[in-house]
Amino acid sequence: MSFKKLIIILTIFFTATRLLAAENSSHQYNFFTGNFDFSDDKQAAMLFGIQHQNENLERDTFLGNISPITGGFITENSAAYVYTGFEWNVDMGALTFTPSFAPGLYFKGDGKDLGHVLEFKSEIQFSYDLSENSKIGISYNHVSNASIGDKNPGANSYMFNLIKNF
């Protein structure tokens, strides 16, 4: 899948989500950039991504506040990952701890072969409130196919996040 196609798909998805949402809904977008697979010197690459969370769909459970997420990223080597899953928001005052889990589809492009198109992303994020509608944060994730593919090298990444509510 080319970079242009991925951008078009994500733009259509996020535009449709915004148009179909109720007027009083609150959408959170997480714009992030960082280093994909930083622990592999031969495969490390810059990544850029976006994640969407519709706060109208969040639920308070016995585990805390859980919310669905959808997003994707692309690397400088044209590898791409699109995903949907959930995150758990732990409010600690001005600081928020957010672990998440999201299965998705990985396209290697000219990047690292992770062994399967179906991959699973586990992530932790810490974010700090800048204002009522903005946060900055750092996050770390691991993408792996849980050994369902012929190989499972996995990829470790870190990101810097700008989170904005609209």
Rank of each mutant, 00 (worst) to 15 (best):
F3M: 13
K5P: 01
L6P: 00
L10C: 08
L10W: 04
T11G: 02
R18Q: 00
R18M: 00
L19P: 00
L20I: 08
L20G: 11
N24Q: 10
H27M: 03
N30K: 12
G34V: 02
G34Y: 02
G34W: 02
D37M: 05
Q43R: 11
A44G: 04
L47K: 07
F48C: 06
Q51E: 14
H52M: 14
N54Y: 03
E55A: 08
L57H: 05
R59I: 09
T61D: 03
T61S: 06
G64D: 08
N65F: 09
S67Q: 15
S67H: 14
S67T: 15
S67G: 15
I69R: 13
F73I: 02
I74S: 13
I74D: 01
E76F: 11
N77G: 09
N77H: 12
S78E: 12
V82P: 00
E87T: 13
W88E: 02
V90T: 10
D91C: 01
M92K: 06
M92Q: 09
T96K: 08
T96Y: 01
S100L: 09
P103N: 13
G104Y: 03
Y106I: 00
D110M: 06
H116K: 13
V117N: 13
L118H: 05
E119K: 09
K121N: 10
S122G: 03
I124K: 04
F126D: 09
F126P: 04
S127H: 11
D129V: 04
L130D: 06
S131V: 05
S134P: 01
Y140L: 14
Y140N: 10
N141P: 01
N141F: 15
H142I: 13
H142Y: 15
S144M: 12
I148V: 15
G149M: 14
G149Y: 12
N152Q: 14
N156F: 00
M159F: 01
M159T: 10
N161Q: 05
K164D: 00
